[in-house]
């Protein structure tokens, strides 16, 4: 089985936001919810400015899953971290724990719940049956089930953002770095997957059973 990962090559990312709107287009993500975003570092500093597209990194040992008080997260056989919106209580803990700010909530301030958490699904839906309307309504499109990869990466204007099997991504990135002679670690890679290949072995976590 492949271990799905994202990798954003800051040597290529131009902050065009294609990944952001592709995501909105594909999943009809409402205003104010940002499953994916582009962050610019060292804005305006000559030679140091870089941009990175970031979303849920589908971490190995995902912090969100650990802190969830109701245990609504699971990790698929492909390594994709998903959650069950029917179980989510909107407490917001996952956002505090997430190193990448991935979880999004429909309500910014609340009295009670922040609403069901929403985040990048690696275009692979949720616990509902694949490619059903109910799955689309809750989690968006399930491209993985269609044999496609996440649209953000598929549409990335400069092929900065890549999605797919982690080992393959690493090879591509390494080759790029060798070819062009610059580029260091991919941002967030180690935070999400641990050092060198650690994240390639993991135990899938089964979806919670709803009674």
């Amino acid at each position: 089985m492949a271990r799905m990962k994202f990798l954003c090559d800051s040597g290529r990312c131009i902050e065009c936001n294609a990944c952001v709107t592709a995501c909105k287009n594909e999943h009809e993500v409402p205003w104010g919810m940002n499953r994916r975003r582009v962050v610019t570092l060292n804005d305006g500093e000559v030679g140091r400015e870089r941009s990175i597209s970031i979303a849920c990194m589908h971490c190995t040992a995902a912090p969100c899953a650990t802190v969830c008080p109701v245990g609504c997260f699971y990790q698929t056989a492909d390594g994709v971290v998903l959650h069950d919106k029917d179980l989510c209580i909107g407490c917001g803990y996952c956002f505090y724990a997430c190193p990448f700010g991935a979880p999004q909530f429909p309500q910014t301030t609340n009295y009670g719940s922040r609403g069901k958490m929403d985040k990048c699904t690696f275009c692979s839906g949720g616990p509902e049956e694949d490619m059903t309307p109910v799955e689309y309504q809750k989690y968006g499109a399930n491209r993985l089930a269609e044999g496609k990869l996440p649209l953000c990466a598929e549409m990335c204007s400069t092929r900065a953002l890549m999605a797919g099997d982690g080992a393959v991504l690493e090879d591509i990135y390494r080759e790029r770095v060798v070819r062009r002679g610059y580029g260091t670690a991919a941002v967030g890679w180690e935070t999400a997957y641990g050092p060198d290949g650690e994240g390639n072995t993991y135990e899938p976590v089964h979806p919670p059973v709803r009674s």
Binding site: A2, D78, E129, D130, M131, T132, P133, L144, A145, E146, G147, K148, L149, A153, E154, R159, M162, G164, D165, V168, L169, I172
Partner: peptide, 16 residues
């Protein structure tokens, strides 16, 4: 995308 195929599961579910 400069990626190898075969890393993605094939679709099992057909059109609804």
């Amino acid at each position: 995308m400069e990626m190898l195929p075969g890393t993605v599961r094939k679709a099992e579910a057909g059109p609804m």
